[in-house]
Structure formats: structure tokens, C-alpha cells
Write a protein that binds this DNA or RNA. Structure first.
Lengths: 208, 208
DNA sequence: TTTTCTTTGTGTTATAATTCACCTATAAGG
DNA sequence: CCTTATAGGTGAATTATAACACAAAGAAAA
């Protein structure tokens, strides 16, 4: 089964499985079945097995999976056996919230710089981070081998920021601006669009 | 074509089309083709037409779509012809950022209450909102016909909050806690999982 | 009018993702 | 050592989603 084209949805679920396994591990649970995982994260057990099968055979028939072992495998698959350096562009409310979010560091994602073009924000501290002028963006990216950029600026500036991030060598972008970004194919973009999410809710609520 | 089962992805895209149309409208553009929209939001023109076809025939062959008319249709479809009242639970960094986000109001989503259980936060102001004690949650929901609840609390508290929201009559939940929520089928849940998004990025970057 | 040009709407085809169903490996118990 | 129960792996079937390709409709020009 190894070496197939892998659905994007499989990767998302793998991330969820991974977090679930981490919880089990912390609780001292050593073995888990696909049915348990399925129950825990709200999918079917066949789905869990299929997802894992893309990457190898990790379980023991009749027994299940070893929690620690499977956790390590999922982390490895997701690229979390190394750490990641990130920059956050935009030191507004959202940027600040992202800087304060502990969950990133726990999974190996480190913020190494926060940037803004607003002079009143530059120099201020957000948690341990001092807000830097946007001119320093490229420098910080290059000096820290930053591979991921987070865009937390208004929609109107998002494309400019994206272009600069790409030019400076970033490989992936997490975009919170409500706009479609134009970047080269090799750059990976994930957009988190709060309004779209609310509007899907709105549609689904009104539907029934 | 009307009356089919509609893909979730279609709804998400409709929200994006709607926002794009709003931009065109503000610019004074009156007519648009499916190819234009496709270009603007990064999909194929066939996709745009198929998505719209689920809800009716809005265009004129040989011409395209009237921007204002199509905008109104998309808003109506998404349930945005009326406004929505929401509560935000959790007045931490993320909760604060959400309260400050202007984009919600622009699309008819109003926050009518922000809640926390941390005594040091209660009574403080976040933008125009005073943080209320969590005990008042049910009261505010009932008095304001709140239909949407936003969960911005740590994972450990998310399920409790969800249960309370549902019990108080909320119909949809936007969940920012990195955990799977257990709620009745009729309740619509959308989860925004920042870590999952980063980990999908991580996987895709390391892959090549 | 009639012709030409454009762009929609949609039947059809292709692709992708999920679920089903069962075969197989392993552990544990007699 | 054999039997039974359990749970993983996976090919096949199903369902869902997206792309293609073209006929039909309307506008504009001749």
C-alpha cells in the first residue's frame, strides 16, 4: 500500500490521530485498536486503518497498535521529527493570539519573529517576542532558516506579504487573510478563513 | 438542477464567490463571467457554474452574471439575508482576537457576549465587550436568540462548554479548541484546528 | 431577419475518497 | 498443540466530487 497518492484529508486526520495518541500516551495507555481511535476522533475504524495503510503496517492483528510506536510513526510521517521555524506577519489581535498559543511549540513549531509595518506596534513586546519592522522580514527568514510564514494581516496586504515570504525562501504559508493568494505551485498554502467557516455554519443551520 | 444533495465544498466556495462579488460590486463592476470568478478565486469556470447550478439559473448565456443580482443570491443562499447573534466563550488571546475581528460584523455576524471563568478577566473590556462570568452564558443565549457559539477555551474545557451551549439552544458551534466535540447530530459543528493546518503544511513541505 | 459570437447550464465522463466485507495474522486459553 | 476470538490489512464496491465538452440561449452586428 506504500507509495500511493495520498488524500489531503488523510493527512489532516493523521494529525488528529497523532494528537489523540499523544493523549493516550500521557495517560499511560500502551495499546489501542483502530476502533478505539475511530471512536475517539469521530471517524470509522476502516478509515483509520486505510489512512495508516498508506504509510505501512503498524499494527498487530488480533491486538491493535502500540501507542508509543504508532505515535512516533505519525509524528515522523507528518514531518514532526524535526522542529520548524516560523515567522508571523501582522502583530494585530490575531497575530498576538498566535504568538501566545502554546499548542504550536508543543508540536515543534517555533515562532522566531513577529513583524508589523505599524510604527506604534514595532518594538512592543508580545509575550517574549519583540515586534520587528517588516523591513527585517527577509533577514530574519534567511538567518533562521524559516520555512513557514503565517499571514495575519488585513486582506489588502496579504498578497504583498505572501510574495515577500516566497521570495525570502519560505516553503509554506498559513494564511489567515480572507483572500486567495497567488504563489508558485511549489509553495504550499493553507488558508484559515474564519468567515467562510461561519457562513458554512449559517447555511447548514438555516437549511433545516 | 435545484434540490440535489449539495457538497460541503460547494458551500465553502459559494462563500468565497460571495466575497469576491462584493469586491466587484464595490468597484462598480456590474457584470461578471464564470471564467472571471474562477480566475479571481482560483477554481475552474465549470466548477463555478456547477456550484451555482445547485441553486438555480442566475446567469445570461452569452453575457455572464449580473454582479449585484448574483451577490444577493449568494447571500440569500448562505443565510446572510438575516443577521446572526453569537457568543464567544473564552476571553484569552484568541477570544479577544475574535472579538476584535471586523470581518464578522461586515457579513452580519454579531457578538452579543464574551464569557470566561477566570475572575481576573471578568468585568474587563475587550473592545466594546465586557467579559461576563460563564454563569451568565445560558441567560445571554436565551435573551438574545443566540444561534452560534464560538469556543475559544483550552481543549480540556471545550466539551463542557459545547454541552452547555447546546443545552442553552445554540444551533451551530465554531470550535477553535484542538479536540473533537461530542454533540447531537442536529447541531452543526465546524472546527478550526490551527495545529492540524500547520501539520498538513509540514507534511507537504517535507514530502518533496 | 439572419448570422455570428459569446457564455451559460448540464449530461456525461473521469477521478477521488470512503465504506464494505472478508481474509489473514496473532494471542490467549484449554 | 490446537482452537477460538480478536483486530489489522486490503481488494472491491460504492459514493462523492470535479472536469469535460457541447448544445442551447441570448446579444450584437450585418
Amino acid at each position: 500500500m506504500k507509495g500511493f497518492k495520498i488524500p489531503e484529508a488523510t493527512i489532516s486526520r493523521l494529525s488528529v490521530y497523532s494528537r489523540y495518541l499523544e493523549n493516550l500516551y500521557r495517560k499511560g495507555i500502551t495499546t489501542v485498536s483502530s476502533a478505539d481511535i475511530a471512536q475517539g476522533v469521530g471517524v470509522t475504524s476502516a478509515q483509520v486503518r486505510k489512512d495508516l495503510a498508506y504509510f505501512g503496517e503498524f499494527g498487530t492483528r488480533g491486538v491493535g497498535y502500540n501507542v508509543k510506536e504508532l505515535l512516533d510513526h505519525t509524528l515522523k510521517i507528518l514531518g514532526l521529527n524535526t522542529t520548524w521555524n516560523m515567522v508571523v506577519v501582522g502583530a494585530g489581535n490575531l497575530g498576538s493570539a498566535l504568538c501566545a498559543y502554546r499548542g504550536f511549540r508543543e508540536r515543534g513549531f517555533y515562532i522566531v519573529g513577529v513583524f508589523d509595518n505599524d510604527l506604534t506596534k514595532i518594538g512592543k513586546k508580545i509575550n517574549e517576542y519583540e515586534v520587528l519592522p517588516i523591513d527585517k522580514l527577509e533577514e530574519v527568514i534567511r538567518e533562521n532558516n524559516v520555512e513557514i510564514g503565517i499571514i495575519a494581516v488585513p486582506a489588502a496586504y496579504a498578497q504583498d506579504v505572501a510574495t515577500r515570504l516566497v521570495k525570502a525562501g519560505v516553503k509554506g504559508i498559513l494564511n489567515f487573510a480572507p483572500t486567495v493568494l497567488n504563489v508558485p505551485d511549489k509553495i504550499i498554502v493553507r488558508s484559515v478563513d474564519l468567515t467562510v467557516n461561519l457562513e458554512v455554519l449559517s447555511f447548514n443551520i438555516r437549511r433545516d
